[in-house]
């Protein structure tokens, strides 16, 4: 007669029966959400000065340059023929290609572009994905309290070799007692010659 593994089969039944009385791990997304992490990044928004309401953006165009998806457009106008003074004319974000990578916020010299917590961006038209200056500033005004609260945590930073934690991550000194690292000797691989 064939062997039937009875004991493991009964163990499996116990596992599924216990699961029956365990609360499900599902989070019913639109109604329930996981608590947001401080490091989460949503779409970029523009901050403005609270007293005057002017946008902090100085129209340097660095964000447009670093944007890997080419979704930012910064249009600036030289004021009064002086090319050194730039006035922000239009700021357009096409969020349909935005990666939420945060390069724009990292590049911004005046903390005007920041990564917000806005992630629910579904719309019925692609037109809904394109944000202009006024919309981005309005979103930035709404995000300002959250930005002030989570400012340090959302900073986008590479490991710093001068601090202990950065050294642990990146520049761990080689332990010389382990001896030289063995590397495999290169082997000649036959290469198929290109026949012309």
């Amino acid at each position: 007669m064939a062997k039937v593994p009875v004991a493991p089969m009964i163990d499996g039944l116990k596992v599924t029966f216990d699961n029956l009385f365990r609360p499900p791990t599902t989070i019913q997304f639109p109604e329930e959400r996981r608590p947001e992490q401080a490091r989460e990044r949503g779409m970029p928004v523009l901050r403005s000065f609270p007293d005057t309401g002017e946008c902090r953006c100085v129209a340097c165009g660095l964000c447009e340059v670093v944007c890997p998806g080419h979704c930012l457009e910064v249009h600036a106008q030289p004021e009064g023929g002086d090319r050194r003074v730039r006035i922000l004319e239009a700021y357009i974000l096409d969020a349909s290609h935005c990666l939420f990578c945060g390069y724009c916020a990292a590049a911004c010299p005046v903390e005007a572009v920041v990564m917000s917590d806005i992630q629910d961006m579904a719309g019925f038209s692609r037109r809904n994905m394109i944000f202009d200056l006024q919309q981005l500033m309005e979103l930035g005004r709404r995000f300002e309290p959250t930005y002030q609260a989570t400012k340090g945590a959302v900073e986008f930073r590479l490991p710093d070799p001068d601090t202990e934690s950065g050294r642990l991550l990146e520049n761990k000194p080689l332990d010389l007692s382990e001896g030289p690292v063995e590397r495999p000797t290169p082997v000649a691989v036959p290469v198929r010659s290109k026949s012309v």
Binding site: F17, N19, L20, P24, T25, T26, Q28
Partner: peptide, 13 residues
């Protein structure tokens, strides 16, 4: 429903 709960899901709801 039972299959869902045994797999830590919710089942139809």
């Amino acid at each position: 429903k039972e299959l869902g709960r045994m797999q830590s899901r919710m089942g139809p709801n």
